[in-house]
Deep mutational scan, measured.
Amino acid sequence: MAAAAAAGAGPEMVRGQVFDVGPRYTNLSYIGEGAYGMVCSAYDNVNKVRVAIKKISPFEHQTYCQRTLREIKILLRFRHENIIGINDIIRAPTIEQMKDVYIVQDLMETDLYKLLKTQHLSNDHICYFLYQILRGLKYIHSANVLHRDLKPSNLLLNTTCDLKICDFGLARVADPDHDHTGFLTEYVATRWYRAPEIMLNSKGYTKSIDIWSVGCILAEMLSNRPIFPGKHYLDQLNHILGILGSPSQEDLNCIINLKARNYLLSLPHKNKVPWNRLFPNADSKALDLLDKMLTFNPHKRIEVEQALAHPYLEQYYDPSDEPIAEAPFKFDMELDDLPKEKLKELIFEETARFQPGYRS
């Protein structure tokens, strides 16, 4: 834990890192770190609560700039109880001085990944967590956004079992017609939660990839272990087919990539493993919904509104309290091709509203 900075004593240090967030945020305490930044909790002297502050230093890398800009653009436009918001952003007053960006968010005690390492969940908890994931996802999908990296560590939890989806750095506007060349190379989302079509096709992607990830998360809540822990690309596919069985001819016809289709045709026939054999203690309604989410063919996979209306979630289902976005989200430009200098300018502009004396 960093010592509390005395008023006016300059930035606090946390594990050798400068955290320049005073005077409003003090009493910093280390939480963890990701690929390009550290997260601390801090005391907000204005709202009198502890908050989470993520320090991001992305400006050396085009990919990190892209992810940072995506996350900020999306989260500043989203407003939903099951999606983490941005409360404040701290950065230098000029673009030349801006080396880091500090993002202030609600402090959540833990995440689903940490929880599943230590606790076996009751059916009631599984049901409530799944409902909140789908409630947040309904809003995301209504904005025409794909999260693309749903996994237990991106689901934040607090002691009252509130759940918030975080990390929109890989999110995209849904565009089933656009052929994202190089899709697989830039697709760094965790393999275990990846839909089979991501490994088999490169053309376009749809909201059904997020539903697949939610199915993987439900299976993990039922058993405290990942359902498809593939060691590499082909191993991942083999794990999936080992449980779902061989795809039907109709399902194979959806695979545009001939090499991928021929690979699947070359494999020995596998039978589907019954879900109640894998999860003998699970609620039968939970397994019915799991089956509809972990469907090989993305066109037959359940959609988020149908999933919310499934009998497993009937005690929570309330369409009048499951809000959607006001308007579909649009990125003005494809960020993939922009140089990091341009992305830095866009991050600077996007964060201006939090600067003292800002006038829109």
Score class of each variant (00 low, 15 high):
Q97F: 06
G8K: 12
I133S: 04
Y187G: 01
A174I: 04
C254R: 09
V145A: 03
H147A: 07
T26P: 10
I243A: 03
A195G: 06
H180F: 12
L343R: 06
K272D: 01
G37V: 15
K285L: 13
E250P: 01
L278D: 06
S246C: 14
K330I: 03
G85K: 08
C40F: 11
P339S: 13
I86R: 03
Y131P: 01
Y43M: 07
G215Q: 13
N253C: 07
R261C: 08
D44E: 15
N271G: 02
D336F: 01
I103T: 03
F129E: 09
I72Q: 10
P11H: 15
L346W: 02
D111G: 03
P11F: 01
Q119C: 07
Y131C: 05
P356G: 08
D288Q: 07
D100F: 02
A3D: 12
S284I: 04
P11V: 13
Q62P: 12
D175V: 15
K203C: 12
V46F: 11
H239C: 09
K203S: 11
A219W: 13
L343D: 12
E305S: 01
L69K: 04
K330F: 01
I324S: 09
L222K: 03
D44C: 06
D106Y: 14
H147E: 09
C65A: 06
D106T: 02
M221R: 10
E186L: 09
C254T: 09
R67C: 03
D149E: 14
K342P: 02
I86D: 02
I103H: 06
E220M: 08
K138E: 14
K55C: 11
K54Y: 01
P268N: 02
H61G: 02
Q306V: 03
L163W: 00
P196K: 13
R225Q: 02
T159W: 13
V49H: 07
A352Y: 02
Y187T: 01
L76C: 03
N47W: 12
A174L: 08
W192C: 14
E186A: 10
Y64M: 08
I209A: 07
Y102M: 08
L156C: 05
P268Q: 03
C254H: 11
K151M: 14
M293L: 15
G8Y: 11
K164G: 11
T63M: 09
F168I: 15
W192A: 12
G245N: 02
G182F: 11
Y30R: 10
I140C: 12
L218Q: 14
N144Q: 12
A307M: 04
P176L: 12
V14N: 03
A4S: 13
L308Q: 12
E314Q: 01
A260W: 02
S57R: 04
E322M: 03
A9D: 09
Q105A: 12
L294Q: 14
L156H: 04
H178N: 14
Y113W: 10
D179G: 03
L252G: 07
R70H: 09
A9S: 13
D337W: 01
Y36K: 09
F331G: 03
K151E: 10
E12Q: 12
A92S: 14
D44I: 04
P93M: 05
C161T: 02
N158D: 13
S142Q: 05
F168C: 05
S153N: 11
L338Y: 07
P356Y: 00
Q355S: 10
M293D: 11
L343K: 09
N253Q: 12
Q306S: 03
G37Q: 08
C40I: 00
N45A: 04
L346N: 12
N123C: 10
Q306M: 02
I84K: 03
Q249Y: 03
E60S: 03
Y205P: 04
T295S: 15
Y36G: 03
D336V: 14
S202C: 14
L28S: 09
I240S: 03
D177A: 15
A352K: 12
K99G: 11
L69D: 04
G85F: 06
E345L: 05
K117I: 05
G245M: 04
I74G: 10
A174F: 03
R70K: 08
L258G: 09
I240T: 03
H147D: 10
D124W: 00
M221Y: 06
T295D: 05
N158W: 13
A92W: 00
H178I: 12
C65F: 14
G8P: 10
L346D: 13
T94M: 11
D321W: 07
A5V: 13
Y102A: 04
Q105M: 04
I347F: 14
P356V: 00
Y193L: 13
I83N: 11
D20L: 10
Q132V: 06
H61C: 03
P152M: 07
L222F: 10
L121S: 12
S320D: 09
A35D: 14
V145H: 05
P226C: 11
A9P: 05
R70G: 03
Y36E: 07
E220G: 09
N271Y: 14
P247R: 07
D210G: 02
E71R: 00
G357T: 00
V21K: 05
L156S: 07
F331K: 01
P311S: 13
E341T: 06
N262L: 08
R359P: 11
E71S: 02
L241G: 11
K114T: 12
C216A: 11
D332L: 09
D175P: 02
K54M: 14
E60T: 00
V188P: 02
S41H: 00
G8F: 08
H180N: 15
E334P: 00
L346I: 10
F331W: 00
H232R: 06
D332I: 03
T26C: 13
T94P: 13
K270Q: 04
Y64R: 10
L294I: 07
S208H: 05
D235N: 14
A325Q: 03
D20G: 06
Y43A: 04
D88S: 05
D100I: 00
R353D: 07
L287V: 02
G215H: 13
Y113I: 10
I74S: 05
V304K: 06
N27A: 09
Q119I: 05
L222V: 05
Y358D: 12
R91T: 01
Q105K: 15
R172D: 07
E322Q: 02
L234D: 11
K292L: 07
R172N: 08
Y102F: 14
N262D: 07
I347Q: 13
D177W: 06
L157A: 12
A219Q: 12
L107K: 04
T160N: 07
F59D: 01
Y205K: 13
I90E: 01
I133M: 06
D251S: 02
R359E: 12
L343P: 08
C216R: 10
I56H: 11
K54Q: 04
N253H: 08
D321Q: 09
P11D: 10
M293W: 01
G242D: 13
A307S: 14
A7P: 02
I347D: 09
S122N: 13
I240Q: 11
S266V: 01
K54H: 01
V39C: 03
Q62E: 08
A143T: 08
S320Y: 14
D149T: 01
I347N: 14
E326I: 00
Q97E: 06
K330S: 05
M108E: 08
Q105Y: 09
L184A: 13
P298N: 02
Y102Q: 08
P23C: 01
S29Q: 01
I53S: 08
K138N: 15
V304W: 07
Y64I: 12
C216N: 05
D336K: 09
P152Q: 09
D318F: 03
Y316Q: 07
D318L: 06
L163H: 05
L294E: 06
H125M: 10
N297I: 15
V18R: 05
I103F: 15
G85I: 04
I95A: 04
I302V: 11
H269T: 10
G182Y: 12
K203R: 14
T206C: 14
H299Y: 15
P311F: 03
F331L: 15
V14D: 15
I217A: 08
I133K: 02
G16Q: 11
A219P: 12
S213F: 05
Y263D: 01
A189H: 04
R77Y: 03
L313D: 05
A3L: 10
L222W: 04
Q17I: 12
H125K: 09
K300D: 09
A219S: 14
L258M: 14
Q306G: 02
T351A: 13
V46G: 05
H120V: 09
I31E: 01
P247K: 04
A42I: 04
A325N: 01
L222N: 07
V188S: 07
K151L: 08
E197T: 05
K138C: 08
E314I: 00
G357N: 01
D175I: 04
L290F: 02
V51T: 01
G242F: 05
L112K: 04
L287T: 07
V21M: 14
E250A: 02
A6W: 10
E350H: 01
K164C: 10
I324R: 09
S320K: 07
L290G: 09
K99R: 09
A4F: 00
Y263W: 05
T206D: 08
L244W: 03
Q17K: 12
C161K: 05
A307K: 01
R15M: 15
S284A: 10
S202L: 13
V46Y: 02
A174T: 14
